[in-house]
């Protein structure tokens, strides 16, 4: 039992070190990678354009629900004029970065892990290496750069759509004056809140996409399965680890910034 615990602890620590090396190699391969921009565009397409519908839909419903719940709570105190502040602060500081990151993990992250896993499985990654192409620079680096760009944008879109959703449920359905709602939004949100929002989005983007890429890239290291089962196992691990890391990092960043 003690031996097992010790082994697991050692494995976790060496896994972390391996992950850090992986991210470092990918970042280090950026300057030497040819025609990187084209693949970054491809990455922005995967993480940005393809994930836009889910971001808009989830953002709208989050705002709608926040508006509804917030109204019923604030109405008891006769402060429904603060609805805009409640919706905007919860969206900008917490909901938009976290939920947008989770949605992007679910759509773009899982796809990335599965794609890299299959490329590992069908020897495409080894083929790259034998051609003299740095597989980290070719496959991973553009995805990380795209994440740096896309996550803040998706988070901002999520927040904007959510604010609109909150005004829909708050002012159209429940009768808070739209002017009161929007002026409350503008008065509540400060530069520091927006900064926190973008810091979170950027950190989540780099963390989740590197975790997903790491698991997919090393799908062959899966001990319990090979082939298609290994790809599915590594994709599952990628999504689970990224989701946990998003929530943990959210707590850490919030405690530092508040």
């Amino acid at each position: 039992m003690v031996g097992w615990l010790g082994r697991r602890a050692l494995e976790t620590v060496s896994g972390l070190g391996d992950f850090a090396l992986f991210v470092g190699r990918s970042a280090g391969a950026m300057p030497g990678s040819r025609r990187l921009l084209r693949r970054v565009v491809r990455g922005v397409y995967e993480q940005g354009v393809l994930c836009l519908p889910v971001i808009v839909i989830v953002g709208a419903f989050t705002g709608l629900v926040l508006g509804l719940q917030g109204y019923y709570v604030l109405n008891r105190f006769g402060s429904d004029g603060l609805l805009g502040a409640l919706v905007s602060l919860s969206l900008v500081r917490e909901m938009a970065p976290v939920l947008a990151a989770l949605m992007l993990v679910g759509q773009a992250g899982s796809a990335l892990a599965a794609e890299l896993g299959i490329q590992r499985n069908s020897e495409q990654i080894v083929a790259l290496e034998t051609m003299g192409v740095d597989s980290h620079g070719y496959l991973v680096a553009p995805r990380l750069l795209a994440a740096l760009l896309v996550f803040p944008m998706q988070t901002a879109l999520f927040a904007a759509v959510g604010l609109w959703g909150g005004s829909m449920s708050g002012s159209l359905l429940l009768g808070v004056d739209p002017g009161v709602y929007w002026s409350s939004v503008e008065r509540a949100v400060e530069a520091a809140d927006v900064r926190e929002c973008f810091i979170k989005a950027t950190v989540f983007g780099v963390l989740t996409m590197s975790i997903c890429a790491y698991h997919g890239f090393h799908a062959d290291r899966c001990r319990s399965a090979t082939g298609a089962r290994a790809v599915s196992a590594s994709t599952t691990r990628a999504v689970v680890h990224s989701s946990i890391v998003v929530l943990a990092a959210d707590y850490i960043i919030t405690s530092f910034l508040v």
Binding site: G48, V49, V92, L149, M153, Q154, A191
Partner: peptide, 19 residues
């Protein structure tokens, strides 16, 4: 188109709300 949309959203958040 996506990048333009994203920049618009970021601008909205920083300039309109956070300024």
């Amino acid at each position: 188109v996506f990048v333009l949309l994203g920049i618009a959203a970021i601008a909205y958040l920083t300039v309109k709300l956070g300024s």
